[in-house]
Write a protein that binds this DNA or RNA. Sequence first.
DNA 1: CGGATCGTTGATCAACTTCAACGGTCGTGG
DNA 2: CCACGACCGTTGAAGTTGATCAACGATCCG
Lengths: 196, 196
Amino acid sequence: MTAHDSLAAYARKFVPLSEEEAADLTAAFKEVKIKKRQFIVQPGFVAKHRWWVIKGAVRGYVIGDAGEDYTVQLAIEEWWISDYNSYIFQQPASMFVVALEDSVLLQISYEEEKKLKAASHAVETFFRILAERSTAAMQRRIIMNLTHTAEERYHYFLEKYPAMAERLPQYVIASFLGMTTEFLSKIRNQKLRRKS
Amino acid sequence: MTAHDSLAAYARKFVPLSEEEAADLTAAFKEVKIKKRQFIVQPGFVAKHRWWVIKGAVRGYVIGDAGEDYTVQLAIEEWWISDYNSYIFQQPASMFVVALEDSVLLQISYEEEKKLKAASHAVETFFRILAERSTAAMQRRIIMNLTHTAEERYHYFLEKYPAMAERLPQYVIASFLGMTTEFLSKIRNQKLRRKS
DNA sequence: CGGATCGTTGATCAACTTCAACGGTCGTGG
DNA sequence: CCACGACCGTTGAAGTTGATCAACGATCCG
């Protein structure tokens, strides 16, 4: 099965597409290969594309005032990634998006996506569903961050995303969970000097 | 201008609607009045509606294991609210949604919304845009929470949402920003014992 | 008037960061 | 092919941010 066929199959999980719609949708995506440490979005530049990961792992992050980095999004196979604030509004990005491994992506441009959505109600629905699911996922993440300690968030992450947990470097997971890599190391090794 | 006209005008900021589409859209919404402290979503029950605030203020929150409450969403005039994880997937809610003031809302049911989106490409587009904007806003909130201190988040909130800041009780703002009301009080009154 | 409700203040405490030092591993160029 | 950095993770000590606890004051409303 080709990369484009995978995407069509993925889209059909959410919305029924005619052969023609599926063909038009996938034709708008271009396969790109990126090397580990290669950037596809950088602050100050508009994110002109969104990407769907076929193979590999990609990370979106921002840099704080003191130079610390914070992972905002992670994507492995069958996940989407971009700087959505930049992509949706076509404004300069605040994020970096970089490959954590040599990766293969399917890339669609803002303009192409816009045309596709206008041309097909079903494709419009597909992107609406993606956006809704993304909203729901972000809401869950906000709740998790507000209501749980660093240690709880890590254990939840392990359970929910075991594939990422075993594959991604620790500093990426730590910064995704909103803690330092030192602290995550202590959690993992039970080196917490607890009163209890 | 009626409440339903306001909604039509709001929708037309994002997408062009024919007279018929606008009429169908607004007809699906029912005006509801709720009293301060009245709940419209409760954990365990499916959120069957989403609401658009015409007048008043509404708060969505979750309760942590130790009974602390965390504000997940706030809505005043022209904002949307629901428990989106519940509404989108039609699964039991984890949030409470409650009126902070006597409020007037426009309410649409999941089923009605579904029909409308299926019947009109433009309405589908409207909801897609809402979802995308919501995703982008949540991403900004995640970044803000990760990258800034409690004090910085408060000052940013003041600047960005002055209308809410002057109108909502302090404990609501504090829990929205992920801090205790005591701490927010100290920030506001500069009672922080700082080394600097 | 009297009880909720909301905000304030200070003392103490816990969660997590920062800083500094070090050890292992991986990959790349000489 | 091996040596030398980068990169990644670990550990401990000290420091900070913000939470918790407890008490109290003001205001609002029925």
